[in-house]
Design a protein around this nucleic acid. Structure first.
Length: 211
DNA sequence: CTCCCGATAT
DNA sequence: ATATCAGGAG
């Protein structure tokens, strides 16, 4: 079976399982979503939501972050991990948002990743979530792991993986498919001990063949 | 490539 | 105890 054929087998199974998943991150303003995604690095959405529930009571726009002391911000976000880096980046991010972008989050990937704390993964999520702009495939640790296990790629570099996946996955499925892989990676194809024996897509997975 | 770093599952 | 988690910056 070619990669494209296997994709066409796997996709409906995951679609049946996950449907149209809505955003797991909670927010009111677009700026809040960007902050939430920055906080979600190496951290679960559940944890981010616990933190932002309090933080977003006082932070709606970049100006609110400018007025907040960095130490105060650190206390709010401490439990998300990497809190000093994140706090510093969010402060710098707010300054650039105010000075350069006049509070308007840029809609171009190249501009978005210029903002402190915003890399390729974060930018893709923000664009997709806020404006349905799906220019790329979100390749995080889950998409990386599952793509290699399934046998879609043999590579560790997120940008190369993204390009390889783009070759055989129709563009309209890019965003939703990465979302499916992430969900499947969290509850079944977990990093340490994948549950191949109860996996719905095992018949189309190279990793399962080896076991 | 290394550092950042707390929470959670195993 | 330890691996791992919806990454990004230097």
């Amino acid at each position: 079976m070619t990669k494209k054929e296997r994709f066409k087998k796997i996709f409906p199974i995951l679609k049946e399982k996950f449907g149209e998943p809505k955003a797991a991150l909670e927010f009111e303003t677009p700026y809040q979503l960007m902050v939430a995604v920055i906080l979600s690095a190496q951290c679960t959405d559940v944890r981010v939501n616990i933190v932002t529930k309090e933080l977003f009571k006082v932070v709606k726009e970049p100006a609110d972050i400018r007025e907040m002391k960095q130490e105060t911000l650190e206390k709010y976000i401490k439990s998300t991990g990497f809190y000093k880096n994140k706090a510093k980046n969010i402060k710098l991010n707010a300054e650039m948002m105010l000075d350069k972008y006049k509070d308007i989050i840029p809609k171009k990937l190249e501009e978005l990743i210029e903002l402190p704390g915003v890399g390729r993964k974060t930018a893709n999520v923000v664009l997709g979530e806020l404006w349905n702009i799906r220019e790329g495939i979100v390749v995080d640790t889950h998409v990386k792991r599952l793509s290699n296990r399934i046998g879609f790629v043999k590579n560790d570099n997120p940008e190369i993986i993204e390009r390889e996946l783009m070759k055989f996955i129709p563009k309209k499925y890019w965003f939703i498919y990465s979302h499916y892989l992430i969900l499947h990676g969290r509850n079944k194809c977990i990093a340490r001990k994948p549950k191949c024996e109860i996996c719905e897509i095992r018949n189309y997975c190279k990793y399962n063949e080896k076991i």
